[in-house]
């Protein structure tokens, strides 16, 4: 049977729609909606989670994220400059650090920082377990963001620093007044993505141990789920995560669109 390419494309698309409709239909028919509603969307359980899920859990998630992001950003900037340095040992250190902490699971880094360092050096982390968690996550975030910042710096045309140097600016001043402001404009979208990843990584803080006041969203929901033997807390936590991350990803899209226009 001879079909024109456009007809074939249209047929293929309708087959896809049909498959999707069948899968959704089966799920609706086969699913036990009473049990699903009781276990995942239990209004009574939801009511018992407020206000703590916002005033403690969500607040802690945001706080841990912002602190890790801020410290990680400073570390990442230093690492990026080291990686671009003409001094070989600086470059070697930056490469070693970045490869190490991008290669390890964040969970292991957190455990190493939270338990390893206190044992090895008999040292009490400032800020206790939260402090160790923030430090560990900052270390991981710095490794990831360093590569983003380096790419941003390299995306600024060479002529920019040549013009600045020709006006008598030193290498450092050129970096801080001419190159970095332009680099950050380029990397705000990818950095915001890093922040979205960090938000989710704060759920690893549980390995360091928590108190009722230091639980973040995932730990808070899991403990409550175990306590009442109902999965609704996970649903609530998921919705709160989305309420935080969706505006951020929306912002990234806006920023990317704006960057595309101004170029």
């Amino acid at each position: 049977m001879a079909m024109k390419p456009r007809q074939r494309q249209r047929l293929f698309r309708w087959v896809m729609y049909a498959i999707a409709a069948v899968v959704v239909g089966l799920a609706v028919l086969v699913g036990d909606w009473e049990r699903i509603g009781f276990n995942f969307f239990n209004l009574e359980v939801m009511g018992r989670m407020f206000p703590e899920v916002l005033t403690i859990a969500a607040r802690n998630t945001i706080l841990y994220t912002l602190m890790s992001f801020a410290i990680g950003l400073v570390g990442a900037l230093v690492l990026a400059l080291m990686k671009l340095s003409t001094i070989a040992p600086y470059r070697a250190f930056a490469i070693g650090y970045i490869e190490l902490f991008r290669g390890l699971p964040a969970l292991i880094t957190l455990i190493l920082i939270g338990f390893g360092i206190p044992i090895a050096f008999d040292f009490r982390m400032p800020g206790g377990r939260v402090g160790a968690g923030v430090l560990g996550l900052s270390i991981v975030a710095a490794a990831y963001m360093a590569e983003t910042i380096r790419a941003g710096i390299e995306a600024v045309p060479r002529g920019q620093s040549e013009a600045a140097r020709s006006l008598g600016m030193s290498q450092n001043r050129t970096m801080y007044t001419i190159v970095l402001p332009q680099a950050f404009r380029i990397i705000i979208p990818p950095l915001t993505n890093e922040m979205v990843l960090l938000i989710k990584d704060t759920s690893l803080f549980f390995v360091l141990g928590t108190t009722p006041l230091t639980k973040e969203l995932t730990k808070f929901a899991r403990d409550f789920m175990v306590e009442i033997r109902n999965a609704t807390p996970l649903t609530v936590a998921a919705l709160v995560y989305l309420a935080i991350t969706l505006p951020l990803t929306w912002l990234v899209r806006r920023l990317e669109k704006r960057a595309a226009v101004s170029r």
């Binding site: 045309p157 002529g159 920019q160 040549e162 013009a163 600045a164 001419i178 332009q182």
Partner: peptide, 8 residues
């Protein structure tokens, strides 16, 4: 410079 290189 040929490419002006103003600071954008």
């Amino acid at each position: 410079f040929q490419q002006f290189n103003l600071f954008p």
